[in-house]
């Protein structure tokens, strides 16, 4: 536990000593802010129109028109941003040779991996915090339901944790941070669009593809439904890639 904490602290330190974390957080806040603003502004325009049109009034709902779409766009932003958070985790240590120190300290590989995962995850949470302000504004100006907001955050947090676990695995495979980021992004995108194949494969395989799709499982959260199936999917996804990360570190030792 001491070791986990030591790694966590060191990693958090280097996130916030380098400009990368600040840039990622800044870009995320600006773009997600813009999304919220435009969704909300659109909703405002529609509300004004609906006042003149009594038929529309009942259909208009801030939760469905703003909160849901905001979480959907947030997931896309997370897809773009997490590779930049994970790319340095092991690549940097490999490049600078500090991995040689790290691996010869009396700490377990799992402690190293979880320490790095934890630091990246916390940074990811910090990145999400500005959106809380946007949500607060919605609550001040309108009356959205609280349930979908909470489930949406649970969804995005699970999504982020899964993305990070895949990113960590890839950063153990190269000492080049750019390559780590590009490959992570590609792999995540593949998991994102994998269900497209469902339309032209057999029914069984289609089911598998849809189950594998990292974004299919997210839709329900954005709609305000927490399904244990989806939670288990993200849990397994993260576990699987963290496990592969461990194997990858071990095999590095074997190959020298």
């Amino acid at each position: 536990m001491v070791n986990f904490y030591a790694i966590l602290k060191k990693e958090l330190g280097s996130y916030f000593k380098s400009p990368i974390a600040y840039m990622v957080i800044a870009v995320f806040s600006v773009i997600s802010g813009y999304f919220f603003y435009s969704l909300f502004a659109l909703f405002g325009v529609m509300s004004v129109q609906s006042m003149n049109n009594p038929n529309m009034q009942s259909a208009l709902n801030i939760t469905e028109e703003v909160v849901g779409p905001a979480f959907s766009t947030m997931s896309i932003l997370v897809l773009f941003m997490t590779p930049f958070l994970t790319m340095r985790l092991f690549s940097e240590e490999k490049k600078s040779g500090t991995i040689e120190m790290l691996m010869t300290f009396p700490i377990k590989d799992i402690e190293i991996i979880m320490g790095k995962f934890g630091a990246c995850f916390l940074t990811f949470l910090v990145m999400l915090t500005p959106t809380l302000f946007y949500q607060a504004i919605l609550f001040i100006l309108g009356k959205p339901e609280l349930g979908p907001v909470i489930s949406g955050y649970i969804g995005i947090i699970l999504l982020g944790a899964s993305f990070i676990s895949l990113g960590i695995l890839i950063s153990t495979m190269t000492e080049n941070q750019i390559i780590a980021a590009v490959v992570t992004f590609g792999a995540l995108l593949l998991f994102w669009i994998i269900q497209w194949g469902a339309s032209f494969t057999g029914p069984v395989f289609a089911k598998v593809l849809i189950q594998l799709s990292i974004i299919e499982h997210y839709q329900e959260f954005a709609r305000g439904v927490i399904d244990t199936n989806d939670v288990i999917f993200y849990g397994l996804f993260a576990f699987f890639f963290l496990f592969l990360t461990m194997r990858s570190l071990e095999s590095k030792k074997w190959r020298g």
Binding site: I7, G13, S96, T98, T104
Partner: peptide, 30 residues
């Protein structure tokens, strides 16, 4: 690993840490 101290070739250390923070980190994991 508990019983050795190791200085690898080319002394790889975290350049963005201060000396005392680094030694503190090492002391912790040690």
């Amino acid at each position: 690993r508990k019983r050795i101290g190791y200085q690898p070739e080319n002394v790889p250390i975290y350049r963005d840490m201060s000396v005392s923070a680094y030694l503190n980190f090492v002391a912790q994991v040690r």
